[in-house]
Design a protein around this nucleic acid. Sequence first.
DNA 1: GTCGTTTAGTTTATAATTTAAATTAAAAAA
DNA 2: TTTTTTAATTTAAATTATAAACTAAACGAC
Lengths: 407, 407
Amino acid sequence: MSKQMLTGSFQLMKSLNRSAILNIIREQGPISRADIAKLTKLTPPTVSNLVKELLDTGIIIETYQGESSGGRKPTMLDINSERFYVIGLDIGSYQIKAVLANLNGFIVKKASFSIPTPINNDRLLSLMIQAVHHMKEGIDDTESRMIGIGVGMHGIIDVDNGESLFAPNLNLYNIPIQKTLEKEFDILIKVENDVRAMALGERWFGNGHGTDSLVCINIGRGIGAGIIMDGKLFHGHNFISGEIGHMTIDIDGPKCSCGNYGCLQTLASGPAIARKAKTEIGLGHPSILTQLVGGDLGNITGETVYEAAAQGDPLSVSILSQAGRYIGIGLTNIIHLINPKRIIIGGGVSNAGSLILESIQDTIYQRALTASAKQTEIMLSKLGEDATALGAVTLILEELFATTSNA
Amino acid sequence: MSKQMLTGSFQLMKSLNRSAILNIIREQGPISRADIAKLTKLTPPTVSNLVKELLDTGIIIETYQGESSGGRKPTMLDINSERFYVIGLDIGSYQIKAVLANLNGFIVKKASFSIPTPINNDRLLSLMIQAVHHMKEGIDDTESRMIGIGVGMHGIIDVDNGESLFAPNLNLYNIPIQKTLEKEFDILIKVENDVRAMALGERWFGNGHGTDSLVCINIGRGIGAGIIMDGKLFHGHNFISGEIGHMTIDIDGPKCSCGNYGCLQTLASGPAIARKAKTEIGLGHPSILTQLVGGDLGNITGETVYEAAAQGDPLSVSILSQAGRYIGIGLTNIIHLINPKRIIIGGGVSNAGSLILESIQDTIYQRALTASAKQTEIMLSKLGEDATALGAVTLILEELFATTSNA
DNA sequence: GTCGTTTAGTTTATAATTTAAATTAAAAAA
DNA sequence: TTTTTTAATTTAAATTATAAACTAAACGAC
């Protein structure tokens, strides 16, 4: 009933302080014990003791002697980023992308594994296990340096149990990812929806840096949103928050696969953009797209439209601008409902770059109600293709820096 | 930068435990010390010590000897609800409603004060002060029994400073409510947006009970939402979250006062319903509304339409059903974006009761994507007219039960 | 009705930590 | 060289929770 009674104990007290110190080092490092004491308002002995523990675990190191400011030189502490590794898996519709990253989010190794069709739960899980083994290969001392495995996957994820409840693009249900990987690797495993992982990734290593209130939009085949509010990733009551692809924007618009009309996804997703281009060309609109796809209109995709637009094709530019307008309307609805500080746009459409971004920004500026709503920052993803995989890595980092397992 | 470093200390440890105990008593009381120890996993001496402190403050009392279950009878502890009072103010467009409530949310005294026009900041503040004085009159030992004053007000509220940044219906800016009331009454003051206060009120004392994930919709002149997620009230980056009145639903719909087209508010607010009725009657549609307003169509309001519908007037029923459909579409967008467990509908429109609720529920059931989205619970406000004022009271209660000022 | 058993709650002693004060370390400034 | 300043550690004290023992009070069995 009443969630989780948080009671105080010596353990908790110590754990809070240890995390506070660790996070100060991560955010402000290299930094001296004395400065940590000032920032945390803990006393020097407390800081020294906890720093000693953190040094013992290897998570931080003493780096160099800092400049004196009139007295003894401070010993600078920093995260021992290169020492540890995290594996991130991005389970998409067609492939698994695996990355091996250090604590800085620096990708040391990367590989992709295509998902065969048809696929079932066991085969997908085997493929994931195989991907992890491949990442671990050739790494020294892998058992002691590997902290965890994060998984970002499309569809509905029960994050409490690390289970994919439904993966529409693979048509799979109830995949026990966390349980299976834990059994195989006996290490920290976290599973999260892909867009939400993206949002975390952008917050830690991308354009979401330094923001507590962030929405990350993924526009590709579908449209989804990952929401970080007051510093916390939001899931919703049934892990289905962020389903903005089927936001009704035009009650009399084109019919969507979901049965309703005028969903954002039928107006502004990658396939929607491609469809629009085909229709217009079919109606006789001239476009260099025809040449780009060698005359076969069936080959037109979102990507080819971006390409044509980048080359100045007026039809493509106009289609992207129109899509940007629809996205802008959808984002304005989001801004009015949850008022984030920043919105980051990722996924395939973000490759269209400023071509679509400007249209989005203009629409929001024009439609938002208040000055502060108009000032919502709209940016493109910094992490691009790697956003979900790095986000998966971040799942583990959040855990690592949040609680610092007490000895 | 890094928000607020939460560091552990003896004080914090104790404070957490004291709150845990206090909240257990509130949620599960009357309850014995022994059971509190079991539920919190604290040891019996710790519980006894903290209970002693809480008894000293007067916030809890020993009530009766419970039934023995084979040994010594337990002494039951409960919140001393009748002992303390909180004042809640609901600052609307036309009047200030004031309530005096005990810790159970039971309203002991109620009064309204109409707001003269024109009004300015100082005059409004004086009126609020007057309302509070009126509430305190005739109460014994008021200084020691009064815990705080909560204020729920329409418009944009900076809750950190307790200031109304903008109150559109009164056309006032930057009203220093908290500062002014603190100076006058030297007591805990909290200020919050009206819909958000409503949401809190419903969560504590209304149909939001027991839910961690709740959206409360206020449909009257405008349409606003108060969002509680993962147990926490959400404000947005600029305190403007929940502005759903201007959610675009029909891109080619009627023009809204905000300049855009097809905003939810132009389709389903009280005035929108009234306008629709007038138009239809003007076009020759027969309706008992004409008699209800004595032939003067200018007198038609949302309320008269509900009344006519309740009497079975086909036009009114149809208009309400249509409005319900629009609201249902808006709510479906909200469900897909933030996936609350429950949505509570309050404000003037909720007086239409099941007439509109069914239409809303049907629309959501029809349009929601997944089974869990379809199962979102849609309910009418339980607190009705008093929702905001009681919500204002709740602002103080949240504070009281969250942190329990340490001695 | 006495005696053992069970449950409630308190007392006493101990342990885990943080905090405060004093001390050592090391460098810059005078 | 001496003094001052800043960094970090050591030592002692304070705060609070926990563990273990104890008292209180009721029930049930014989």
